[in-house]
């Protein structure tokens, strides 16, 4: 589904991504974790063309992201993205946030879009807030709306950029629940997160990045029980209550 081959990215002389190669199969959920500055969010933004890389290639469902022949806007309508700071449009109601792109980009009628929009809001559990403005909702509710907005375009892939990092602890679960349901329904997902519990339960594969490189890629189970790299072990020790000898608590 997503083929990332030898991607490197520089900000001036700073190398943010160093020869990254990953492939993600359809229906898979991949979690990318790692310390700050490791390039995880940058890699995610390369997948839908919000960041431009200098070397390598990325193919989403056979379409090259930086291919000159590619209509990047059309490609983006097949990729959904959820941001750390929600980024709901403050001047529009919740429902309007969700239906804006379907109407303007996919050309659906307003009536159909509203119907679909309400279904999606119901699915993420905020239908009763449909006519309110983002500022009137809690962080957890806003993020769930953000997921609905991305789903409204019926994407083939969903990208999550630290979706719970800006939330108060008691609201993290409600967002993770929505994401878990999505994964179980077979959506191809790439999630950048610190939530190791979610990674353990829901991820198929886990990618650990540090300083722009891929350090380790393992299945979820292997990652937590048998991390092979020293850096991975140190990271896990800091992020979770993790015994350096490899025994989880």
């Amino acid at each position: 589904m997503i083929e990332i081959s030898n991607v490197s990215l520089w900000y001036a002389s700073y190398k943010a991504l160093d020869d990254i190669s990953v492939s993600i199969a359809k229906g898979q959920t991949m979690v990318i974790c790692g310390p700050s500055g490791s390039g995880k969010s940058t890699l995610l933004r390369c997948i839908n063309g919000l960041e431009k890389f200098q070397q390598g290639s990325i193919f989403v469902d056979g379409v090259g992201v930086q291919d000159r022949a590619t209509d990047i806007y059309a490609l983006r309508s097949h990729i959904g993205m959820v941001f750390q700071h929600f980024e709901l449009y403050p001047h529009k109601t919740i429902l309007e946030n969700v239906i804006l792109a379907p109407i303007k980009v996919r050309g659906i009628s307003r009536k159909d879009a509203k119907h679909q929009g309400r279904n999606l809001l119901d699915r993420v559990g905020v239908l009763d807030q449909a006519d309110k403005f983002p500022a009137e909702l809690s962080g957890g509710q806003q993020q769930r709306v953000s997921i609905a907005r991305a789903l409204a375009m019926e994407p083939a892939v969903m990208l999550f950029d630290e979706p719970t990092s800006a939330l108060d602890p008691e609201m993290i679960k409600e967002v993770l629940d929505v994401m878990t349901d999505l994964a179980r329904e077979g959506m191809t997902m790439v999630v950048v997160t610190h939530e190791m519990g979610f990674a353990r339960r829901v991820a198929d594969d886990i990618l650990f990045m540090d300083q722009g490189c891929i350090v380790e890629r393992k299945t979820a189970e292997d990652f937590f029980l048998h991390p092979s790299n020293e850096r991975t072990r140190r990271f896990l020790e800091r992020v979770m209550d993790y015994d350096i000898n490899g025994r989880g608590r």
Partner: peptide
């Protein structure tokens, strides 16, 4: 972030 959110849904 607003610009990115709009772009991510495929807006021109």
């Amino acid at each position: 972030g607003q610009v990115n959110a709009g772009l991510a849904t495929g807006m021109r």
